[in-house]
Design a protein around this nucleic acid. Sequence first.
DNA 1: GCCGTTTTCGGCCCGACTGTTTTCAGTCG
Length: 576
Amino acid sequence: MPDPTNAEIAALLDELGDLYELDGAIIHRVTAYRNAAKAVRDATTSIAARVRAGTVTEIPGIGKTLEEKLVALVETGEIPATVKLRAKFPAGLVQMTRLPGLGPKRARKLFDELGIDSLDALRTAAESQSLRAVKGFGPKFEATVLAALDAGAGEAPRGRVPLHDALAIAEPVLAALREHPASERVELAGSARRWVDSVKDLDIIATASDPAALAQAFAELDLLESAGGIGDAGARGRTHSGLSIDLKIVAPAQFGNLLQHFTGSKQHNVALREAAVKRGLHVSEYGVTDDATGETHHCETEAEVYALLGLPYIEPELRENRGELARDFVAPTLVTVEDLRGDLHSHTTASDGHGTIREMAQAALALGHEYLAVTDHSASHGFGNDVSPKELVAHMAAVRRVSDELDGITLLAGSEVNILTDGTLDYEDDLLAQLDWVVASVHTSFAMTAQEMTDRIVRAIEHPLVDAIGHPTGRLIEQRAAYALDMDAIIEAAARTGTFLEINGSPRRRDLHDVHARAAVDAGVKLIISSDAHRTTTLDNKRWGVATARRAGLGPDAIANTLPLDELLALRAGRR
DNA sequence: GCCGTTTTCGGCCCGACTGTTTTCAGTCG
């Protein structure tokens, strides 16, 4: 029986929280399960391994009781409490709690009094107007619940939008608002400001000389399909693609409070407020109130909010309650796009790219890069985009020729080599030895066991001619989960051999993601941030990789391609 | 169920909204 992954354990803890909530447990106990689930999801090492080692209670939010449940899970594959409660509450009941206006308390009431235990049963009861017989339920609720069921609510959670797509909408909206004569300050808030992988909606915070005029201008944007709630406080809109955008307009004196509140995360804000209460302060979106004086401080900037609480300014990317509010937290200097001196993963027309070597090189030069590795796909890539060994020899020569002809940038003749199912590579070693830079990646056969996939990638990591592992987990945001993999083993192997791990900057990938990037650096692995550009315009994909590194709390020191080329190559020289 | 520069017990963020109520519990973000 394979160990459960952190994601699987987190899902089980969330489910157990839901079940206890239906069972009428006090909310703080339920919250404890949800906090634990979040902690497990964000953990940088294998929880199952920590359970075996007896160190799992070192993770904040996991105490003695949860440890016992996790021990049972790891040893027997199930948690007795879950088994018991699943028998008590049908799965449909949990689904019902996802409907608007129907939380655990009210769903439980319908279950107890009318025996409703599924979305179908709920629909039938609503249609026959029998819900209104229960105290606390009326005709309005019957109508709302039918509308929600017709809209497909409760079945599957509505998909989140990759940040790349959401920002493509947010940026023109922000620009339009900033250009409007009535606007003063306009900032993106919400999870998008924290540069998460994908978002549910967008939040914009503004101050304005004429709030109603700005709200009206927002509502009339062509990007919006509809808008409502238009007034002095802002407006809410919905784009043609179905993304909600909330504009909140506030007095300048409270701009910092509102921006801080709506940037979140929720977990960060809860922890922040708990810490404030211990200092006799109460934080809300409107201000910081002092118990002793009864006075409420308004803050024009976020920095003032944090300063009032005795905290350093915390970058939005770090606001996840992953230790940024700890007493000993030192605000790190986070890596920026400007810190990157070069790019170590790009494609040309030799494989599936859309730019020539020269076009890609000139675009990279225009971005200020000192070096660019041209890493076209290898011999087994397929789709007619493979580069045969013979073609690779000619391609290397062409790359070096262009490199010689251009001033200000050095091109590395590289390859993105396929890691075959057995962990071998699809070029012979004598050919690989002629390359300046080798990225090895998995592009086929994702459906292996975790052990097989781990062995496969570790073998590539251990290959002395492999410099870096590309998009190590293979995930596509909101599209495809990472393949089963023992990330601790991957990180250990990379640290042991000095192989770089990539944070792939493609906005669909951002792979490694932040939790694993953090774990890798803590284990002594050097990372690179790459664009994986397939055309000149996507060379700036590195911004997404930088965002992921910032969310991991990483500074320039953790990223090898912040170094000049000679130092970067020296770092790798020990291996070749 | 977790946790401790107030605590090993008694706390555990904050405010708005909603539909249903005669004063508010539950839900939501």
